[in-house]
Design a protein around this nucleic acid. Structure first.
Length: 472
RNA sequence: GGCCCGUUGGUCAAGCGGCUAAGACGCCACCCUUUCACGGUGGAAUCAUGGGUUCGAUUCCCGUACGGGUCACCA
């Protein structure tokens, strides 16, 4: 599911839930040429994964079903015929090829392509004759030739359009299926839709919908058109970017509630200064007055920051549950302190996919050079590190309680005794235990995570490692 | 091209006639520190443009520029 569509769905959901309304899922599949196997499952799965649960829909039913338009087929044509009867629509027998040449000619003359209303004034007899001859037809909306139609949008206010700029759009296609433009109006009325949240590409066709509502004498819903999400100032976030889909972001290691949180903020601003919200907090906070009129550029860097904040805000248990699968990608051993590891990882994880690399030293120490023991800041060298490790070894060998607090206390005591900077001792320990320049925790944390046996082994290995190179 | 919509730091944005023009991300510096982070403090950086209206315009009106949308038997 495209991230823009998801955001629109999110706003619709938030609006419905905020006002105690009903969130309905309707599948609009009136174009059989565009049928894609499994597409509806993606919709179901995505909305569910995000927690946007619908109150009525194809799979769960409701009082206004069916909720799949292709299953409501016959109904639209009846309504279209009703429109024909009251003179608001008409049968059109123009072929597709006539329309093509017509549009080409119009373009050649510098006109915008539109229907020339060729069949608009056919007599009832002519229509009847053609109909009984089995001629293919569509039903078109009969737009008034003069005057103007206006509609009100919550975000943009009143928008007026001269009727002469409106085309006699097709309501029922030659295959008997309704167009979106028609099915949408009929179903929204029949399903009791009160608020329409949609992308603002529909802004220019909304006057035609209003004409339809008026013709049927139906109540016009509240319109809320939202701007697009952009890749940059001139391009919409689109399929071409390869990263515009919800599923892509999940794969990249974004945490779903954080994705929802971020996209809610793209084009909408909460009242206060807080910006981290759960779905239910968003429901409370949401207000259409905060929706922006201008497009928003998608910023993955900002989304990452939101993601990191989300991860940090999780409880220990929640965080641990979320990251265990990622840890398991590179860590097979079980005899480590996963709780402490999780605590160390929590302030350092931006994306969930950062985690496997961060813990890849736990199963075994990677190859490294003695240079790794050199730190200008910590004032360490391989030689000083050798001394530090040799000092630490007996100390830890004589330590049975290998909890972080215990080790930490013992080591700090020793450091104070020795009268050196913490880093001089702890930096080498961290290096020997990890073989890495950056680790999710310092020497004492790593020791506690790895446990006594592994820590002792790695300190000995570290000593050997330094000695081997130093003597050469 | 016609019609419609929009334009506050690099990005998301608050603002709704009078403010030193919030906040967040990013960036820079410093502090904290057992690496890297987290956290803390500070900093640089914005009202597209020209006319009005007004005692006073980021805010209201008009034009211009720029950007977006739309003009299907697609949604």
């Amino acid at each position: 599911m495209h991230i823009g569509n998801l955001r629109t769905a999110l706003y619709a959901y938030l609006l419905a839930k905020k006002d105690g309304g009903t969130f309905i899922l309707r599948i609009e599949d009136t174009d059989q040429n565009r049928y894609v196997e499994g597409a509806t499952d993606v919709i179901y799965d995505t909305l569910r994964a995000c927690g946007l649960n619908w109150d009525e829909g194809p799979d769960i039913g409701g009082d206004y079903g069916p909720y799949i338009q292709s299953e409501r087929m016959g109904l639209y044509k009846d309504y279209a015929k009703k429109l024909v009867e009251i003179g608001k629509a008409y049968y059109c027998f123009c072929t597709k090829s006539r329309m093509e040449t017509l549009h080409e000619d119009q373009k050649a003359n510098g006109e915008t392509p539109h229907y020339d209303r060729h069949c608009r004034d056919l007599s009832a007899e002519e229509v009847q004759k053609l109909l009984s001859s089995g001629a293919e037809y569509v039903i078109r909306q009969k737009i008034p030739t003069d005057g103007e139609t206006s509609f009100n949008d919550i975000i943009y206010g009143e928008i007026k359009t001269p009727n002469k700029d409106l085309d006699d759009q097709i309501l029922i296609k030659a295959d008997g299926m309704p167009t979106y433009n028609f099915a949408n109006v009929v179903d929204d009325h029949l399903m009791g839709i009160t608020h329409i949240v949609r992308g603002n590409e529909y802004l220019s066709s909304t006057p035609k919908y209003n004409l339809l509502y008026e013709a049927f004498d139906w109540e016009i819903p509240v319109y809320i058109h939202v701007e697009h999400i952009m890749r940059d100032s001139t391009h919409k976030l689109s399929k071409r970017d390869g990263d515009a889909y919800f599923g892509d972001f999940v794969k990249k290691g974004f945490y779903i509630p954080a994705i929802i949180n971020y996209i809610a903020l793209l084009g909408w601003a909460p009242k206060g200064e807080r910006e981290i919200f759960t779905l239910s907090e968003l429901i409370k906070e949401f207000d259409v007055s905060g929706i922006s009129k201008s497009p928003a550029i998608f910023d993955e860097v900002k989304m990452k920051a939101i993601n990191a904040e989300w991860l940090r805000a999780l409880s220990h248990d929640e965080f641990k549950t979320v990251i265990i699968p990622y840890i398991k990608e590179t860590v097979k051993r079980e005899d480590i302190d996963f709780d402490l590891l999780a605590d160390c990882l929590q302030p350092r994880a931006e994306l969930l996919t950062d985690i496997p690399e961060k813990v890849d030293f736990i199963d075994s120490v990677p190859e490294y050079k003695n240079d790794l023991y050199i730190s200008k800041k910590m004032k360490t060298t391989p030689e000083s590190s050798l001394d530090a490790l040799k000092m630490l070894l007996p100390l830890l060998e004589n330590t049975d309680d290998f909890s972080f607090d215990s080790i930490h206390a013992k080591i700090m005591e020793k450091i104070t005794e020795a009268g050196v900077k913490n880093g001089v001792i702890l930096f080498p320990l961290r290096t020997a235990l990890s073989g890495k320049a950056m680790t999710p925790g310092g020497g004492t944390e790593l020791a506690a995570i790895l446990g006594k046996t592994e820590t002792i082994k790695r300190i000995k290995d570290g000593i050997a490692h330094i000695e081997a190179e130093v003597t050469i």
